[in-house]
C-alpha cells in the first residue's frame, strides 16, 4: 500500500464524515458548505489518486472540481437560497 493511496483513503473518510455533518444542516448555510468541501478535499483526493494510479490526466478532473466549487457555490448562494426552507429553523 503506497503512502499516497493511504492518504487518499484517509481524505475520503474525512470527506464522508464531513458530508454527513453537512447534510444534517441545521441551516441551509451549513448545507452550502458541501461546495467548499468538494473544492478542497475532493481535488486533494484526485491529486493523490493521480499520483497513486499514475494517471496524470486526473489532474484535469481536479482542476474542474476546484472550478466547479466556485460555480456551484455562487449558484447556491445567489440563486437558490431566497428564503429559509420551511423545515429549517435558524438557530
Amino acid at each position: 500500500m503506497t503512502l499516497t493511496f493511504a492518504l487518499a483513503i484517509f481524505l475520503l473518510l474525512n470527506l464522508i464524515v464531513a458530508l454527513v455533518r453537512v447534510a444534517r444542516g441545521p441551516t441551509p448555510a451549513d448545507r452550502l458548505l458541501a461546495a467548499l468541501l468538494f473544492g478542497t478535499t475532493g481535488s486533494a483526493i484526485l491529486l493523490l489518486l493521480a499520483e497513486a494510479m499514475g494517471q496524470p490526466s486526473l489532474l484535469d478532473t481536479a482542476l474542474v472540481f476546484a472550478l466547479l466549487a466556485a460555480i456551484t457555490g455562487v449558484a447556491f448562494a445567489r440563486r437558490a437560497w431566497r428564503e429559509e426552507a420551511p423545515d429549517d429553523e435558524p438557530r
Binding site: L12, L19, A23, P28, R31, A35, F38, I45, L49, A85
Partner: peptide
Amino acid sequence: FRGVVLLIVFGLLMALAWAR
C-alpha cells in the same frame, strides 16, 4: 433544496468513482 444538494454531492462522488 436538500435534494438538489445531495444530487450534486452524488454527482461529484460519481466523478471520483469514474476516476477510480
